[in-house]
Design a protein around this nucleic acid. Structure first.
Lengths: 207, 207, 207, 207
DNA sequence: CATGAATGAGCTTTCATTCAT
DNA sequence: CATGAATGAAAGCTCATTCAT
């Protein structure tokens, strides 16, 4: 239909504004994840996004706004992921946890979502708004989800330490550990995450 | 008028060079821990140390060198602490771990040593030398210590998952979690570390 | 739903090109008067004119051209005003001057024409073309007009200092003063322009 | 005493901090007077002052602060000048005014103090603090001085329009006019200020 | 050794101008 | 003609580093 008109190759304006915005968010994500907020240069972001530096300011108020938007927008998929876990059909807790860990490895640790976690950890202390937001949107929900899983398991008569309902942190801690370890020691002392999480899961639910 | 009186009064030089160096290290530690490496200003460090900015360069090559020295010097006490744990007399593993956790809470979490851990975590990816050094000096030793504790326990016939010898990370993960949590959510959702670690210890050694 | 109705409704193009040009000139006048040339943003002009920023460049070569056009176009009405004064029927000089001052108060000081004067004063040093143009089109004519008025009065036998023919500046000076004063001290020390000009007129023509 | 040591010519640090500050103020004065606040670049100021750009920020908070300090510091000498006029011995008003005008021509119009007046006029509307300050420190005092001169003259029985006591603006207006004229039309239509002021003085005090 | 004023490269941000639509 | 997203040169400001004292 449009094929005839498309003969002339469009030089600029290859991307829609929203695509450009996404390109900037993506580039910013990479740069911030690699350098941290303060050490990142908007020049790098612009270069990597393939836009001029000024273009960033058409979409974001300033550097900090860009950073916050990156975190905010990245959280959506994480929530979706959480939901998909929450809606898993009823099954033994150990299998459920194995699935959660599997999800984490596949969709967080092996994607750039781990960078979000790392960024929240490293920059959160300087961006309380982000820490608060992340806690409200992700952490509290994840905590609730894990507590619920534990509670159901206990009600089902499984041999689970009831303290885990109060401290779901213990379930997540090794996940965090794997993210941090990966960022620091991947080269010098790599961690077999799958193996560790399997062991972890057995510790959590014994019998 | 004043000239006569000040013949031999030592106005400046209230501190020895080494004291000055320590003051800078201490101040740098505080500033870097609070702001991160890139966002920290040597002005702040100098102010807080009570020295002139130029003085920093008499003791350290540049900003990065100061940062690395801070980490290096801070690691000594941690090692001492590890040693003291390693030399604890033989006792049941659960009690031993309880002591380790107790040590951690008292001498890390409630002191500025947690800032070292945080700094290594947040800046390590940008300072491979630090990550490597920290791994060699602290992590590997801590891993060995925990593995040894587990091994002894198993040999002693205690009911301990042998996988823990391979993955001592699982023992430490909640400690890391508490450091991170404290930095991010202390205000909005404080964590009862003592309670969590008690639960953790029971999970590790059941029976 | 809306598509059917909008067959022939002229959505855009509510204004003719010339109307658009005028809107830009008007908006530019306001913005430049309020901010000065350098501090004015074409964004503000476009916003206030209700056009897109790029549209300005369809009508004006660049920012400086817009500025100069504003001054140029604004001078027309001033000249008309001068003419209307020049064509006043013969009458005693004091009454004539009173009329000139009255004109000034009504048609300059209480309209945005005072902004033109202010702009010429403040930006003139950086835009010699404007200063020259303004002098040729306005100042020299005004000077001639005032000199002629004075000359006629003297010929008519009125008691007027002949030096005023050579220095008509003295007649205008308080008008300038009122424009400047109004821009600076209107709030903190307002000036009764009518009273001042009345006194001024009496000083000029005594008898 | 130090003569021996002074053999080696000091490369840098030729100026004391205060001298440097003054150099920046002076350079800023020139640049701001020539370009206006918004169009002035701190690079130009630094170049002209013979310092690095960063040095400006050791002495002034930001560009606006520099500007305000320039005005503030320049006002001191003006006040001194006013005082010296106020303390002139009693003499006929026409002679007194002639002296005031003479002062103005010599110490304002022919020095860079006229630039201060111009800057206050042109930038005052955007820097209310400056307008207010200038009014309080200079204008109000000058007004009071002129009113007092007029009053004394009247009391002395001289033939002076009493309205001048209320509108000393009329005495100053031609001075302002000369500053503005000089800035705009010096090249194309120079003004004989001395002649004009002489005529002005005669108009003010007749008989 | 210690000082802190000075430096200037480098960063964030702005905004006149362009151009694909 | 009109639009407004995109551009990128240029400006203000910062801060690690230097160096005369």
């Amino acid at each position: 239909m449009k094929s005839q008109a498309s003969v002339s190759v469009p030089k600029k304006r290859r991307l829609s504004p929203e695509q450009r915005r996404q390109a900037i968010l993506k580039a910013g994500m990479d740069v911030f994840a690699a350098q941290g907020f303060a050490a990142s240069k908007l020049d790098s972001v612009a270069d990597q996004a393939g836009v001029a530096k000024g273009t960033i300011y058409l979409h974001f108020k300033d550097k900090q706004d860009l950073f916050e938007q990156i975190i905010l927008e990245a959280i959506g998929p994480i929530l979706t992921r959480l939901d998909s876990v929450a809606q898993l059909p009823d099954m033994p807790t150990d299998i459920l946890l194995a699935k959660v860990f599997q999800h984490f490895r596949t969709h967080v640790l092996e994607t750039n979502k781990k960078d979000i976690i790392r960024l929240v950890m490293t920059e959160g202390p300087r961006f309380p708004a982000i820490a608060t937001f992340y806690h409200r949107e992700v952490i509290s929900k994840f905590k609730a989800l894990l507590s619920a899983i534990v509670k159901r398991g206990i009600e089902r008569g499984e041999n689970i330490d009831p303290a885990l309902e109060q401290y779901p942190h213990l379930i997540v801690a090794p996940l965090l550990m794997s993210v941090i370890w990966d960022g620091l020691f991947a080269d010098i002392d790599p961690l077999n995450v799958a193996g560790m999480l399997e062991a972890h899961q057995k510790l959590l639910i014994q019998g």
